[in-house]
Design a protein around this nucleic acid. Structure first.
Lengths: 209, 209, 209, 209
DNA sequence: GATGAATGAGTTTTCATTCAT
DNA sequence: TATGAATGAAAACTCATTCAT
């Protein structure tokens, strides 16, 4: 016998978050519709307000959840167990595969930048999520330096932004890039080619000589 | 003597485009308000529809104008007159200064990517604007290779995307980056630091060894 | 005790339909105003969109309801119980009294013809409403023929169109006819005179000799 | 050598009237657009206001011209030269052929009835156009009575309305009738069948016994 | 006589949010 | 916890008409 679908706060909330992620990432904050989210979540609109306050707070929750997810996946890379070069390669690979498989996150950030990061700024959760990441990067760079394979004095934040910039920019702007360069950049081979290029660029950035 | 403010189609159109650029870049396509554009342009709303059809077409016109502008500025760099290394440095510098001074363009692209490049895809103008750019880049890379300072077989499109990625990504995502890394990335010194980092990264990408 | 005026979907829908019938018939589809309908219905405009979709669909609903009503009234005439001559007289009488008392229906049809029947064509409901009517007419004609009072081979659809034509045309075009013939055709006596004339015309059409 | 297209009041007016007839009859008074009329007429919108005042007055002008045209054609039938039966047949035939070839007039009247004949009521021209018509009909009926082929005391206005009703109603409501009876009533054979039926109906109405 | 730029009020439709049950 | 009816403000877009040249 099926459990009754009623009165299950946790599931309702999860449904709403999932639906909201879909809607927000598809249309951006401004283009997303509360009605559409409710329909996607198969719940009553009022539930959404009950659990999440309003559209802004809901967006913030979605963003928090999404940041948590990517940071968790990054943490699972176990970069500390890899030698520095491999760790960098792993990071590039991860950037491509994660954003390819989860393009919603890029689109969420896209929208959030358009909104000048209002939601992130309000979220203590998100703002305290990134120190570990910087520390992990810093430690990889340190180890590489110690091993004599990486240059010294590479700023981990700058490096991270470059790493993400080369990979993420391609994927997040893939629509405009495909259009202006008149080539489909979403094909598997195009993405593979790009990934190789990025690996090259990032390694050359850190390596000695 | 004041020129009469009335009955001047060219000026009206220019006012509308300018106002639309401001509004669209500030709030994105979805967040922009036709009423607000009309008010900014100090014209009657109907004029906007008269000259530009509708919100979509207006956005497209703004985008076309903006692409024209940046490509025109790029063309004025006279990269052919510089030696290859200098040309690359000039490109990095240009990327920073142009987008710093004209952040509207990045925000327009941001919005356009959220819309999956619908407007660019409709615009023949834009789609035929980029061949010259690729050719210029290719020629710089060729010259560097001939001079023995650049590696061979660097794809100009890949290179360009990387070049833009490292510079543009920082500036276009500056709000979220500032928030998550809890540092103000919009200060002059932060931008200078980033620019140096980018120059380093891009040169290392193309240089031999 | 008063029933509470709030939160009653059925009543709200009925109010909207009634108000829409009034507005559409008074001004035609194009002349009708959604705002005016909402005001007449004493409801919020959005309710109208919530329940009926848009102006077109609302018009269609009004039309369906109106067709249902007249066909229901026709069915209640119990023509099968009358002898053929009386049945015909009853039909003429009905045509006059119904359209006199419910001029909205004529005006709706007037508007719908101006729109080339777009709404009817979209409505399966309406298109399946008329077979019974034709069958009833056909059976009256058959009985009259069997009784030897009516001519043979009268097409029921042609006959029905003529029947309606002579009665309905007078009432539906009463404004232009009154104006061009410079007589008030809306007086009781004028309508009575017209009705007698129609009865004469229709009976002469079907009778033997 | 071509005459210059400029500064020709008569032609401009004629173009406007023709365009207005097209637009008004296609969409009705309310649905017609001044802009569209100007475009159809290939003239400047202001010309329309210059020559015809406003939308209402323009509609009235179109209506007057259209009534003039049909009355002129009717007058040319030379019914006085025909024997009464033939004259009646001629009238039926005329009704069909005229409205088939000039459906704009019906649509104009359709719209005008929706507007409760406001324009006709304002037009002295139209209101004085119909006496001759009634007189011609009356004279045909008189002659038929004198010849012993028509009944006596047939009211010419009633008769005329019936005559028009049976023919015009079919054509003016052809869209709704086709839809509800699910047959294409616009085919040549359908119109021929209807015309025969109408002739039968009208003759039976006037003939003795 | 002719042009087309300009206007203000209005039209349909949408949206985030709240209320009653 | 859940439902869906109800709201008011605002969104994009349109229209008849007038003004400046």
């Amino acid at each position: 016998m099926e459990k009754p679908a009623k009165r299950n706060a946790a599931r309702t909330k999860a449904q709403i978050l999932k639906a909201a992620l879909g809607e927000f990432s598809e249309f951006g904050y401004q283009g997303a519709r509360i009605d559409a989210i409710a329909k996607r979540a198969n719940i009553n609109k009022q539930m959404l307000y009950h659990y999440f306050g309003n559209k802004d707070d809901l967006f913030q929750s979605v963003l928090e959840q999404s940041y948590e997810k990517i940071r968790r996946h990054e943490a699972e890379l176990k970069l500390a167990d890899l030698d520095p070069i491999e760790a960098i390669q792993e990071l590039v690979k991860f950037g491509f595969s994660y954003h390819s498989k989860n393009p919603e996150f890029m689109r969420l950030l896209n929208s959030e930048n358009l909104q000048r990061a209002v939601h992130i700024k309000k979220s203590d959760k998100i703002r305290h999520m990134h120190k570990p990441l910087v520390e992990i990067i810093a430690s990889v760079l340190k180890r590489g330096e110690a091993d004599g394979v990486f240059r010294s004095n590479i700023d981990p934040v700058q490096f991270y932004i470059t790493l993400v910039g080369v990979t993420y920019f391609y994927l997040s702007n893939i629509h405009t890039l495909s259009a202006i360069f008149d080539q489909d950049m979403m094909t598997k081979s195009a993405i593979k080619e790009r990934q190789d290029h990025c690996e090259e660029a990032v390694l050359r950035l850190v390596r000695c000589q």
